[in-house]
Design a protein around this nucleic acid. Structure first.
Lengths: 193, 193
DNA sequence: GCAAAAACGGAACAGCGTTCCGTATTCTCG
DNA sequence: CGAGAATACGGAACGCTGTTCCGTTTTTGC
């Protein structure tokens, strides 16, 4: 028995067939766009249409709707986490940190539609908060450490605190507000340089 | 202009046409049963079938699904609140209180399906918590007062505290647990008799 | 009783998730 | 490199959903 995959990404055993790779990518990017504009309850057909893919293809890769949502979420978590080292290589430590914080808040803001699903009691989403932490804490830790090592910021703030604080900042409408708040936060970090 | 009713119950102006009365009652009791067994997302047709009523009839009285849910909820709140004076007339004060508390927890337990709707952000349900308080606080107040007046229980517990405590007791599965907890609670009330 | 008004039932429509299978692509091995 | 098997694809088809609409029935006011 070929062992139901249900995940879509890792491909542990053999290499992935190119057509599978193509339709999987198309589905994930299409779903990401649709979820962002119409929410995670958007019609399936809208996603398959945008991906240029048949309905059967979607259901073979993601038997449950939650599988697709989870996969998209993890994809975007990865992308956001991957931005940290990239920024670290391009900017000086404190600016890299600040830029990443903005990147992170954009990510959180776009994922507001997920909150309802997360709290819906559906156990299919139980793993998401764990993945969230698992990926973002190391990414942010490196940024904080190098910024602290060069004396740019104080060193007594934990990544968890910062992530928590950001998540609760994004609510009030207007990205301008968020922008100012992050500025304030970074200034606060600089205070004991 | 006949002024959209959307409520279904009060009938402020003229008396209600008998056929309206009939289909309204049938709809409300049918919806109550269906909501209890299948949750508030149950198919509309199941309700109209059980009520022996056409779809058009439902939509004329309850243009939005939330209207029907709200009406059923208020109906059952009323029924539960009305049980208080009835029990007070039939039993001695402390026993009446205890019996009503059980009645109340059964009500809460049956309404678990509503929690998701309440927290869904849909502003159609904003009035429900208010109605909940408005009806239950007076009902419970009378029970507590008369029980306290006859010296059966202490008099330093507010209705709000009690309602709050009960709402948080019902969760753990098994009505037996809830039963014991209420016994404990009433014993606690008796303590300073 | 008899029009006029109001409410009823249920067929009809559009949109949804999901399944199924004939067809096309890819892999494997001689 | 080519043939056969294995795998994945597309999209038509199904059943169920919410909602609207209108011909028919019930109720009212005179």
């Amino acid at each position: 028995m070929p062992e139901r995959s249900t995940t879509g990404e890792p491909a542990p055993g053999r290499r992935m067939r190119p057509d599978v790779r193509r339709s999987l990518d198309a589905l994930l990017t299409a779903a990401a766009e649709v979820f962002e504009t119409e929410g995670v309850d958007a019609p399936v057909r809208r996603i398959t249409a945008k991906a240029g893919v048949g309905a059967g293809t979607l259901y073979r890769h993601f038997p449950q709707r939650s599988d697709l949502i989870t996969a998209v979420f993890r994809n975007e978590v990865d992308a956001c986490a991957a931005a940290a080292p990239a920024l670290a290589a391009q900017y000086e430590p404190v600016e890299a940190l600040e830029r990443w914080l903005h990147r992170f808040t954009r990510f959180i803001a776009a994922k507001q539609g997920l909150k309802a699903a997360l709290h819906s009691g559906d156990c299919a989403y139980e793993s998401l908060p764990g993945y969230f932490q698992e990926r973002f804490v190391p990414a942010l830790t490196r940024l904080l450490d190098t910024a602290a090592a060069t004396g740019g910021i104080r060193s007594d703030v934990t990544p968890d605190d910062l992530l928590q604080a950001l998540s609760s900042i994004i609510d009030p409408d207007g990205p301008e507000y968020t922008r100012r708040m992050i500025g304030l936060l970074v200034d606060g970090l600089r205070y004991r340089a």
